[in-house]
């Protein structure tokens, strides 16, 4: 009789990020990706990892987005987020349950934590992936990410070390449809840590001025260097407002101080995937387009018929934006008024 060693089902883990009890939507995007990976990895399971204080209420949401089990460490030391207790708790879970794949959101928190975990458990971590698949031959995670400022894509593999870790930026993956009702298992684990073991302490939080979340806007009207100065942005605001959207920008706009950095779209700004993206006076450098090419519909306005932005746009208007935008506003408002 052969010795049957029971190998546990490969676990695909997603870190469920929360702050002040609010789950970050990127966690659900990641659960969607985990489900797709799981379909290609026979026998695998999708599970969530949740840390915080009084956050058990988030677990059922995770089930609806596809987690069959949630590992929960609930401890007062985990509110607010600090690198050390989170690093301690999560790496303990990894050591104990040996997941095959572990995904994090490439948020400030996720990046802070994932880099720590990967080093602690001594494995590979691929940052800022834009696509996650299972390599059909090797049956391991194939994580694709842009390098060299978005000029090149590279598919990264982690052959020998486990878990295979990756981070993905919010809005790079699409949001899955939640199931109306789903059951899951909640597994609590202790933190085993004292406050005096933690050499950092939050003194206070200065809330951000405006919580502009262009990542999750449905309509973005973005302006580039072609706007020529800060004044023109009032026009873009007017157009954005009439479309129920927000204003975005390319980097030179932020560098010049015409708008705050929270408006920046692109490689070093935010990744967005609105339904409608209007790019005015933006040339379309890769560093910009990597951040917005996931949009459903792109309308580009540029006076240069050879502008590279036209290569990614669904509709391109060759013309002076200072003529086109006011006309757009006029016609959009006209439609609104039922004309």
């Amino acid at each position: 009789m052969s010795e049957q060693i029971e190998t546990p089902a490969p676990r695909i883990w997603v870190f469920i990020e929360q702050e002040e009890g609010q789950p970050h939507p990127v966690s659900w995007e990641l659960l969607g990706a985990a489900a797709r990976l799981s379909a290609e990895l026979p026998g695998s399971v999708v599970e969530g990892v949740l840390l915080g204080h009084n956050v058990a209420g988030i677990a059922p949401q995770a089930y609806r987005y596809g987690a069959t089990r949630v590992y929960l460490i609930d401890d007062p030391l985990l509110e607010p987020y600090r690198n050390l207790p989170y690093g301690h708790g999560v790496s303990m879970l990894v050591t104990k349950y040996k997941p095959e794949i572990f995904l994090f959101g490439a948020t400030t928190l996720g990046r802070d934590l994932a880099g720590t975990i990967a080093t602690r458990v001594h494995t590979g971590l691929t940052a800022d992936c834009t696509e996650l698949t299972i390599d059909p031959k090797l049956k391991i995670l194939a994580a694709t990410r842009p390098t060299f400022g978005g000029n090149l894509m590279a598919t990264i593999l982690c052959r020998k070390h486990r878990p295979q870790m990756a981070t993905v930026r919010p809005r790079v993956l699409s949001m899955p449809e939640p199931l109306p009702a789903a059951e899951g298992e909640l597994l609590r684990e202790p933190l085993d840590l004292n406050e005096r073991d933690i050499p950092v302490r939050r003194l206070r939080l200065i809330p951000g001025k405006e919580q502009l979340n262009i990542e999750y806007a449905d309509v973005i009207v973005a302006g580039g260097r072609g706007m020529g100065g800060p004044k023109g942005f009032t026009l873009l605001e007017e157009l954005a407002e009439s479309l129920g959207g927000v204003v975005g920008a390319s980097r030179p706009v932020i560098d010049a101080g015409w708008l705050g950095h929270e408006h920046q779209v692109g490689q070093t700004g935010k990744t967005v995937r609105p339904k409608l993206y209007i790019a005015a006076g933006i040339s379309g450098a890769v560093q910009h387009t990597v951040g917005m090419s996931g949009s459903n519909f792109i309308l580009a306005i540029n006076s240069d018929p050879k502008a590279p932005i036209f290569q990614v746009a669904n509709a391109s208007i060759v013309g002076d934006l200072y003529k086109v935008i006011p006309e757009l506003i006029r016609q959009v408002k006209g439609t609104r008024n039922g004309q």
């Binding site: 494995t123 590979g124 691929t126 894509m153 593999l157």
Partner: peptide
């Protein structure tokens, strides 16, 4: 280095 570049390509 646990990670290796499988392939590289232009977007």
């Amino acid at each position: 280095s646990p990670t290796i570049v499988g392939k590289a390509f232009t977007p």
